[in-house]
Design a protein around this nucleic acid. Sequence first.
DNA 1: CGGTTGGTTGAGCTGTATCAAAAGATGTGG
DNA 2: CCACATCTTTTGATACAGCTCAACCAACCG
Lengths: 249, 249
Amino acid sequence: MTTTIQPARKRKKTSPIAGPSLLAGPFGHSGSGAVTQLLTDRQRQQLAAVAASLRLPSGTSLYEQQSQAGSIWIVDSGVVKSWRILADGKRQVTAFLFAGDLFGLAENGHYVNSTKAVTAVTLYRIAVDVLTDILRRDPELEFQFLCKMAHELRELQRRSIIVGRRDAPGRLAMFIAMLAREQTGTDVTSHTIPVPMSRMDIAEFLDLTPEAVSRATRRLKTDGIAIFQNRHAVRIVDRDRFEQLVGSV
Amino acid sequence: MTTTIQPARKRKKTSPIAGPSLLAGPFGHSGSGAVTQLLTDRQRQQLAAVAASLRLPSGTSLYEQQSQAGSIWIVDSGVVKSWRILADGKRQVTAFLFAGDLFGLAENGHYVNSTKAVTAVTLYRIAVDVLTDILRRDPELEFQFLCKMAHELRELQRRSIIVGRRDAPGRLAMFIAMLAREQTGTDVTSHTIPVPMSRMDIAEFLDLTPEAVSRATRRLKTDGIAIFQNRHAVRIVDRDRFEQLVGSV
DNA sequence: CGGTTGGTTGAGCTGTATCAAAAGATGTGG
DNA sequence: CCACATCTTTTGATACAGCTCAACCAACCG
């Protein structure tokens, strides 16, 4: 485990591309932000050699649920949403993916969800057969992928915990805390937290109706906990009560 | 991908131990039951050589949330429940683990949930440092662990979907369907499905109160969909309406 | 600038959590 | 084998939170 902490926001979009990055705790990461680069420079170069590097505008569809899965993807910058359509026709946003996140794992050779760029994004795309070849030859690298998947597992569990909460304001607060962790390095600063996705996306992630999300935002405001300065930025005003609402999961 | 389908129920507890087993779809498994053994006989023997094999009575605690994580575990037979205590003091059952399931992944060297045997179980326990050593030397084996984790990820997503449903009877139906898939090989037969865990365990898994679970069971009965013959066995009476209630996720 | 989509606000309904208590299971010791 | 104590499960009555439906407001885009 060499390497240093490398928050996503520090990487400029215009800088020379260093190659794909996997961010996670090496079988460990306390949930409070210490996410580190898993790959060595050599490994990143190796992956870069076989990866397509894409720069796509906001709103671009990457792939559709059920379609043939030929690649796995890594976020370099920007935000991607992943969702699936349930049997009853409802959408469920299963994850928001940030810099260093891996996505596009297939089931039976088909993608299990659809994905779309929420913001402008830069991505790496690697053909699965090429990747599996490399992984079989490089146990160290493969081990890092394993770590990454363990990380994903824990993130998913975290979402379960959020959705497990009954009250909408609590869910929203946890969501904001997640955004803060994911985007601004460590924990909630008293500064402004960007909220790139739409209310509907949020609702579908938190398993609420858009109405409930709207009322929850108002609730946070009237309670003097957090204020949406505009539709894509929140500011925590009472940090203590915010943390208290979030609860330390 | 050699090997054959090997449902858990077919393995007798008294038979000579063949070594640990990992069951999953090799980056693919349609959700309708085709779960296969991932490991070759050689790999299973290799793991068996370093694994402790345990036979434990129902109710045995395996490890506690937060405790030092020294081993990873594989279920050979029986059922294990995994849960965590949330910030507000509530329990959340994160998973029920069946034959071929892997558990005990650590975060920062500590377990993230507690586990306990729901039934009498036989388990394999492997020290993490020994395992990581083996994995680094054997990319093929490591690749199977990767497949297994991808499988776990999908299972967790499946739970999210279940809990996403608003109505208790629907959640319970999906849970029963899950039990059927997991325990009796393929899909819901019209036969009796064993329900090894308590109502409270079910409630904590489905994120409902025990009362809600109780009422949901009664609902399924009065609607003529499924009948609990006793506390640990259900029978589907109207398969079509059951499937319809479950919805094909 | 209309049209379209996304977001907010309001009134009533549904279903689950809660609180309280009875009925069944389970286990122990006489 | 029964009686008692304990825990689990079920049943009932009430309150509350979010869903639904419907309307209104705001923003975005040609």
